[in-house]
C-alpha cells in the first residue's frame, strides 16, 4: 500500500476535514467503552486522590524546612499536584492496550485497508484514548479538590481557583494544545510498537521521560537552577508544567501566548516526525507481511 506523506495544515494531524467524522465516531466509542466499566471509573478516581495526597504530604514536608523563597510557593505546588492528578490520564505515559494487542496479533493490518489516511485515523483513535478518561475523571477531581476539601476544613490543601480570568483562558487554551501534543507523543509510541514483535518496548522508556520531564515527579521549577535552561526547551513540559503554572499564575499573563506557541510548535514537529516514521513502518509491514 502506498502512502503519500501529507504536510500538516491546521489541525496538523488531519489529512483533510473529511477524516473528522470517523474521528468523532472513534472518540464516542471510546467514551462508551469507558463508561461500561464503572468500577474502574470509581477506582481510578480513588487512585488519583491517594497519589495526590501522598505527593502533597511529601512536598509539604520538604517545604516545612524551607527558609528562603522558592520558585513556586506551596499554594502553587498544591494546585500543580491536583491538576496533575485530575489530568493524569492525558499525559502520554502509557500506550493503548487495545492497540498493543492489535499489533501483537497482527490485526493491525486491517487498519491499512481502511480508506483513510492512516496517521489521521490513528491520531483520532489515540486522541480518544488520551482524552476520554481524563474528562470523566478530571471534573470530579477538580470539584473535590476545589470545593470539598475546603468544606472539610482542609483549605490549605485545596486547589485554588485560577489566578485570573486571563490565566483561566490561557489554561484552557494550553490544555487543548497539551492534549494534541500528548496525542502526538502517544502515537509515536504506538508507531514504535510496529518494530517490536511482542509490542513491548519504547513505550516503557517513554513513560519514564514523560513522568519526569512533564513535571509529574517533581514540579519542574523546583529542579536545580542550572537544569532550568534545558527543562525549558524540552517538549514534555508542554504536557503539564505549562498549563498548570498558567492556571496558578506562576507563569504571568504576558508569557502565556509565547508558551502556547511553544506547545504548538512542538506538536507540529512531533506530528511530522510521527508521519515520517509511520511511513517507514508501513513499508516494513507491507514487505514483511505484518
Amino acid at each position: 500500500m502506498k502512502q503519500t506523506p501529507r504536510i500538516a495544515s491546521l489541525p496538523p494531524a488531519f489529512g483533510s476535514w473529511r477524516d473528522i467524522r470517523p474521528l468523532v465516531a472513534v472518540v464516542s466509542a471510546r467514551y462508551r467503552t469507558l463508561l461500561q466499566y464503572r468500577a474502574a471509573a470509581f477506582a481510578g478516581f480513588a487512585t488519583q486522590l491517594f497519589w495526590g495526597a501522598i505527593r502533597l504530604m511529601i512536598l509539604a514536608a520538604f517545604f516545612a524546612a524551607a527558609t528562603e523563597p522558592q520558585p513556586m510557593n506551596l499554594t502553587e505546588v498544591v494546585a500543580y499536584v491536583w491538576l496533575g492528578q485530575a489530568l493524569l490520564g492525558m499525559l502520554p505515559w502509557n500506550v493503548d492496550a487495545d492497540f498493543r494487542q492489535q499489533i501483537r496479533d497482527g490485526t493491525v493490518a486491517y487498519d491499512l485497508l481502511r480508506p483513510l489516511d492512516l496517521y489521521s485515523y490513528w491520531y483520532g483513535r489515540t486522541l480518544g484514548f488520551r482524552v476520554a478518561a481524563p474528562t470523566l475523571r478530571g471534573i470530579p477531581m477538580v470539584l473535590f479538590a476545589m470545593v470539598l476539601l475546603p468544606l472539610a476544613g482542609l483549605g490549605d490543601w485545596a486547589l485554588i481557583p485560577p489566578a485570573s480570568a486571563v490565566a483561566f483562558a490561557g489554561f484552557v487554551g494550553s490544555l487543548v494544545l497539551a492534549a494534541m501534543l500528548a496525542t502526538a507523543v502517544t502515537l509515536l509510541a504506538h508507531i514504535s510498537l510496529l518494530w517490536t514483535i511482542s509490542g513491548v518496548g519504547v513505550d516503557r522508556i517513554l513513560t519514564v521521560l514523560v513522568t519526569i520531564f512533564s513535571g509529574l515527579v517533581v514540579p519542574l521549577p523546583l529542579f536545580p537552577d542550572w537544569l532550568q535552561p534545558f527543562l525549558n526547551w524540552q517538549p514534555f513540559r508542554g504536557l503539564a508544567d505549562v498549563p498548570y503554572r498558567i492556571y496558578s499564575g506562576n507563569i504571568p499573563p504576558a508569557e502565556i501566548v509565547p508558551e502556547l506557541v511553544f506547545i504548538l510548535v512542538w506538536t507540529v514537529a512531533l506530528v511530522l516526525l510521527g508521519r515520517l516514521i509511520l511511513l517507514r513502518g508501513v513499508r516494513r509491514m507491507v514487505v514483511q507481511g505484518g
Binding site: 467514551y31 462508551r32 463508561l35 461500561q36 464503572r38 471509573a41
Partner: peptide
C-alpha cells in the same frame, strides 16, 4: 443490561 448510546452508557454508570 446495557442501554444504547452515550447517554445510556452514562446512566449505566450509576
Amino acid at each position: 443490561e446495557r442501554l444504547p448510546g452515550l447517554a445510556g452508557a452514562f446512566r449505566g454508570l450509576f
